[in-house]
Design a protein around this nucleic acid. Structure first.
Lengths: 212, 212
DNA sequence: CGACCTACATACATGCATGTATGTAAGTTA
DNA sequence: TAACTTACATACATGCATGTATGTAGGTCG
């Protein structure tokens, strides 16, 4: 196990990883634009600079590719938005941080992959659809807990049950993020506004937004 | 032009209209579940009690069928939600009436046809996608005017430009309508809350919702 | 440097959904 | 009731995208 051995092994592994990343990124863009059914693998490969042969060498099939994209998007989202939420101690602060963080996350062009696929596979029984609903369901449960906690402390006024609130909360967060992608800084402000509205919190008074 | 002539003519026309409606309704349900690309015309026809032959006799092709569905949904939406908005004189009341009316409209199962197709054709150049964006763009312009009017009268506090606000407003209305379909009466309440939040209006104090 | 493996391209086979052409029964008008 | 049209079903043809099988060049290791 000399240094050169690992070096060359990393060389081949790096080559593989680079092409994989290129294909993954092209697939993510393609999925967000065309969805799953209309995604043509030859275009994906061509956009990444390869052919379908490379794609089928690195991914078992179209479904496997889409699942890999979903996993990749989930990981980048967690890395960028998840920690913003985790470092908040107050549940309301956490919910507001998630909304604002997601709005910022949505400024990149692959952000609406999840939404596109979720809509396409809604009501179906497809592995890709299940992968997405699993993620969303976990997130929704987390948000429901945060809302329940906020209710318990009195920070969130009474209203519909926390699970229903969480569903509405995530819906508006997603909608604002997608509708206002590329409209900084209004994306963050309106995500904040919409979430406060759903939670029943009073609006921030003029001049105090955005907070430092 | 005796009564009998018109009678029999109405008989054949009625037959045609009934099968057309059955196919249209089946197509609407199919589109909202599977989207356009995954919609199989044989299933649509079978669900309506016919075969593809009937479908191709009444519609030129798949695209024509989808366009007819879009038109039909638009008309039912106008009939059910549009007049609620039109009879409001105050712009803020109109915006709130639209949000609440749309939430009620979304309780039927074909309500998310527009959203499904809009997502599927986003960024494409397809006639069906254009038909939808045309409708949404008109609605968005109307809402932007209402928001500008509310700003002018001071009823809506300052914030992002009306066009951006309208985009966020409609996104939120759509999201809540879809997420909370079948969760009456929370759907209406949360649509109201979300819209008030986006517009920067204070929440309704506890106990006063819903208004008569 | 010769044997082997990996990364990728090219070529082929399959399936599925659309669209079209044809057939048939029911309805309409003289 | 006979000529004609409409409403629909059945059968056929086409295209396109996936998946697989095969080929080849470059890297890897003895």
């Amino acid at each position: 196990m000399a240094g050169k051995q690992e070096g060359v092994r990393r060389a081949q592994a790096d080559r593989r990883a680079r092409t994989r990343s290129a294909l993954l990124e092209a697939a993510a863009r393609g999925l967000s634009r065309y969805g799953y059914a209309n995604l043509v693998l030859e275009r994906v490969a061509a956009e990444a600079g390869y052919t379908r042969g490379a794609l089928y060498h690195l991914f078992a099939n179209k479904e496997d590719l889409a699942l890999a994209v979903v996993k990749w998007v989930e990981e980048t989202w967690d890395a960028e938005v998840g920690h913003l939420v985790a470092e908040q101690t107050d549940p309301v602060d956490a919910l507001l941080a998630l909304a604002r963080g997601h709005a910022v996350y949505c400024r990149r062009d692959v952000a609406d992959v999840m939404m596109t696929l979720r809509v396409e596979f809604a009501g179906q029984d497809h592995p890709v659809g299940r992968a997405i609903t699993d993620i969303v369901d976990r997130l929704e449960a987390d948000c429901a807990r945060l809302i329940a906690a906020g209710r318990g402390s009195g920070a969130i006024p009474p209203g519909p049950p926390p699970t229903v609130m969480a569903s509405a909360y995530l819906g508006v967060v997603e909608a604002v993020g997608i509708q206002l992608a590329g409209h900084a800084p209004h994306d963050v402000e309106l995500a904040d506004r919409a979430v406060r509205g759903v939670l029943g919190l009073p609006p921030v008074t003029a001049g105090t937004f955005p907070p430092p």
